[in-house]
Write a protein that binds this DNA or RNA. Structure first.
Lengths: 194, 194, 194, 194
DNA sequence: AATGAATGAGTTTTCATTCAT
DNA sequence: CATGAATGAAAACTCATTCAT
């Protein structure tokens, strides 16, 4: 179990930095601090390794969001909590966040497997939105696009922040993303509601 | 010139489908309908080929947005026109749109070159936003994040649409993206302004 | 002792089916129902394992032939008994028979060890022939080739039978091989001597 | 075409000496005097290479036999001519002959492909036998075994000769094989027919 | 200009063997 | 005695790039 975890970390590191295709199994092994053969003792191959990583990572992210959302019944509070969880998770797992964006659309064949994993995450987002719509707080939405919009908005901004390596004021970032998503560019500033 | 254009098309095709790293120069040549050697007669190498593609594609997209925005002085009208241009361009260049998302974050070394290209596009978006803010129509924004948010929201939804291969009502998609971006999930429906 | 025998069986199984080089020690262990480490507790290595198998198998075959031949003094009867023993042994040890043919010529380095083992078997065949020649029943033969001819004729036909998986009439097969070897394609049919 | 032929020769060399599994593609390339990549430019992979070799070699052997047999209508003459052709071909292609015996039964998966190739050769032998049986010169035979018997008898003896590296009197070898096959160990010596 | 055969450095994967428990 | 996680040397295969034609 020890080694398997080392491999997990090494793989996230390597894939996040170089991208799945450009990172070699040698690099993964080196960063994991294990011999190359050990990689193949624990994982069938490179492909299975990335799938495991994505499943694990998205699962954790999804759980973090679920937990945060469970704290309140208020739709707006839920969206804020969800975005807060996303930002916090990304901040604690910068490597994985890069890997996620780099790999999620990378390969047509893998697409199928990833999409399934991602779908469960999207379903969670959809659930939050539906709750708010049902309560009459959110506008009705074309639900085939809504989770993608949320995901795209939040993820791409976060990635930008991570890639620029700047130490970010998390609080401020969450505020921005929440306001933007909730009220758009035209809406009131949530910090100073009239 | 004929051949160079064939190569351009073949490369977009191949890179969009398989991703930059997994697409081989053989595949590019095959899809372009030229011999492999011809690729190297017209382009220095694989790396230079993708850079040329990105530059060309983003340039076209950026121009399309600029042209659309130039039609009006009204900030909201400009945002709508810009989103309309993005959707239209993506619809006419589905392959390139896939390639864009797949390759833009792919590789750290290339990052630099791409970022430069992408920056000019982001600058254009920033300009539109600044215009609206200046007019007092849009809320003040953290401008280091604002173009990323816009780009992420629009691009990821469009990609979702393209990947699902569904024939989409462009009009409805633009409406959704505009409303979402302008007013957020809580805002009024743009179609039925009070 | 129990485990050693399991390994023996597992190794025959694995080597017979996949060939020595393509069968892995994992497969041997699995078929033997022991852990991989156990293989190395009982045998020095893969090479030593195949040698042990061949020695054991050819020894058994050789003994079976010797025993059958000892029943009679009549040269023709001895050849028939020998062929009968070969067919019977092959039928009871189909796996080993496949392994024998697959591995006997496989590798130049191993050749030496195997040749020694095989030589004792060939010597036995040579003895039977010499006995018949001495009695004036068999024609003088070029003895450097005679045992190979006998071995090749019988073994390849048996292998063919085994590989085709057909349930064979042993009696008829022995008759055929004996007649063919004794009288050639032109000789009388042993079953209906004129 | 030049290189393809070099590869053919190099592969026969390497596979004959080390056996298919133990010969590396590096060795094949080295013996062929080409770069490793060239191997893969001309052949899909190792598996396809051995298949091509077998097909080519058995085809040549089969043709040589056919040509020899066509010279006469006499059944016994045909068998002698066939064996003569086999010995001659083996003598001129010692490497291929070793490869044939080493690889023909090596691998269960490959078995299928090889068997098909070998079958055409066996069919030729069957044809010769049927001709003689029809003429009433040869005894009726169980034709499911007859070609295997012929093949085994001749091939294994030839292999023995090749492996021992002795310079052989071809004439004498053909005589022996013919007599053995035609009259068995008990039959008259063909050299001194009564 | 265009071609495609040839290359070899680089990558993934396999597997016999070891050794701490 | 027995185990199975860990190893690393070795092997098959890929592919961007070159170059003679």
């Amino acid at each position: 179990m020890r080694k398997a975890n080392q491999i997990f970390q090494g793989a996230v590191d390597a894939f996040a930095e170089k991208g799945f295709d450009r990172a070699t199994m040698d690099e993964v092994a080196e960063r994991a601090g294990v011999a190359k053969g050990t990689l193949y003792y624990h994982f069938v191959g490179k492909e299975e390794l990335i799938c495991f990583l994505m499943e694990e990572g998205i699962g954790q992210l999804s759980s973090a969001v679920a937990e945060a959302v469970a704290q309140t019944d208020d739709p707006q509070g839920q969206v804020r909590a969800a975005i807060g969880a996303m930002v916090a998770y990304s901040n604690e797992n910068r490597k994985f966040c890069q890997l996620l964006v780099k790999c999620i659309w990378s390969n047509a064949e893998r697409q199928e497997q990833f999409r399934e994993i991602l779908q469960s995450y999207f379903d969670r987002l959809t659930g939050i939105l539906n709750h708010g719509i049902h309560r009459g707080v959110f506008q009705p939405q074309p639900m085939e696009w809504a989770p993608s919009a949320w995901f795209g908005l939040v993820t791409i901004v976060i990635l930008r922040v991570i890639l620029q390596g700047q130490a970010t004021d998390q609080e401020r970032l969450v505020d921005y993303l929440y306001t933007q998503y909730m009220y758009g560019i035209i809406g009131r500033d949530i910090k100073t509601p009239n």
